[in-house]
């Protein structure tokens, strides 16, 4: 038994050393190298299966080489991630990676006001998940979001319930759909659109299968498997439209804009974008090096291929432009939020 224990110990030690060796051997570009030997990347999601983790993990993996450091992605959830960032040192040893929910959560009241974008240094925008979408059951009497509202208009006895998560991307895109239906067909239709507020993607799927929701918010990455040929009718889904400004390559799903969905006369689209946040007074040199390293990473074919595996695309916006870009995007969604219905009133 002692021999087995020793053998196991030796194998584990060799494996660990070889893993460490491969990290340190990768080295880094001397121009972009940073002082920290380890950077902690906290993300606004507590899931390691979602798009935030996948994007954070991919960009961190490639940035390690560029910055000559080790990066560790910690899925601790938005509130804790903001807390960590607010108490983090200014040397860049802790940064946050998240998506549009970072500011949508503040606007919808899910996150504290002190977490607003102005209180952080906004780093570069890195990627887009263009697959944000709405889905329905395979046998639903409509094939697009626009048709669902038309169907409600033609069937005054019917209602549609949409499963979304409160305070995030799914709420803003639902608001867009609701306001368009109201503008296009009047309150006679919009009053018959309800929401089923729930949490995870699994909960939304189950709500559809239970018949508690007619339409759910989802994504190509999470839901396309249920739309394929050969899937049992009971769980079969179909896409009603993607929320991004452009179609996703390889999928025949129209955008909301293509379906004629507008809000306040403008085409309604919403790109879910991922970006870095850093402490307000972060070391400028670190911020610059991170930005340069991200720029190099997004040009790498391997990185692009890795993102492509899950239907994500690179979308580099340099740090010096990203602040204005995101503040402008926030301003636009604010107008929608002001006009949007109170979920408490339309919740089922």
């Amino acid at each position: 038994m002692k021999n087995i224990a020793w053998m196991t110990f030796i194998v584990m030690t060799v494996l660990l050393l070889s893993a460490c060796g491969s990290k340190s051997a990768s080295g880094g570009d001397s121009e972009n190298s940073i002082d920290q030997s380890r950077v902690r990347v906290v993300i606004g999601s507590s899931s390691t299966g979602g798009d935030t983790y996948q994007n954070a993990e991919a960009v961190s993996r490639y940035l390690e080489d560029g910055l000559g450091t080790n990066m560790k992605v910690d899925a601790i959830g938005a509130v804790k991630a903001f807390d960590e960032l607010s108490t983090a040192k200014d040397d860049g040893s802790t940064v946050m990676f998240f998506h549009d929910m970072a500011y949508l959560g503040v606007e919808y009241g899910s996150f504290k006001e002190e977490n607003k974008l102005e209180n952080w240094t906004i780093g570069p925008v890195v990627a887009i998940n263009p697959g944000n979408a709405f889905l329905t059951s395979g046998d639903a009497p409509y094939d697009t979001l626009a048709e669902s509202a038309e169907w409600l208009n033609e069937n005054p006895e019917e209602t549609i319930t949409v499963a979304i998560q409160a305070g995030g991307v799914s709420e803003i895109v639902f608001d867009g759909y609701y306001l368009w239906a109201k503008e296009e067909f009047g309150t006679g239709v919009s009053d018959r659109i309800n929401v089923y507020v729930t949490g995870s993607q699994e909960d939304k799927n189950q709500a559809l299968w239970d018949g508690n929701a007619d339409i759910i918010h989802g994504s190509i990455g999470s839901n396309s498997e249920y739309t394929k040929k050969g899937v049992e009718d009971k769980i079969k889904m179909k896409f009603l439209g993607v929320t991004a400004s452009e179609r996703v390559e390889g999928y025949d799903i129209p955008t909301m804009a293509e379906q004629g969905i507008t809000v306040n006369g403008k085409e309604f689209t919403f790109d879910k974008e991922f970006f870095f946040l850093m402490p307000k007074e972060v070391d400028e040199e670190f911020a610059t090096k991170l930005d340069q390293a991200v720029q190099e990473v997004v040009d790498m074919e391997n990185y692009q291929e890795d993102l492509q595996k899950n239907a994500y695309i690179t979308n580099y916006i340099p740090a010096k432009e990203s602040t204005d870009y995101l503040l402008e995007k926030r301003e636009e969604v604010n107008q929608i939020i002001e006009e949007a219905p109170d979920l408490d009133k339309i919740a089922q």
């Binding site: 899931s47 390691t48 299966g49 983790y53 996948q54 498997e225 249920y226 394929k228 595996k309």
Partner: peptide, 23 residues
Amino acid sequence: PGDSTTAILIGAFLLQGIEVGPL
């Protein structure tokens, strides 16, 4: 995922670009 541990296993599949679903 049936529990919190298998929820993390999904992450391993997705990192490799393998979709886990009914097929």
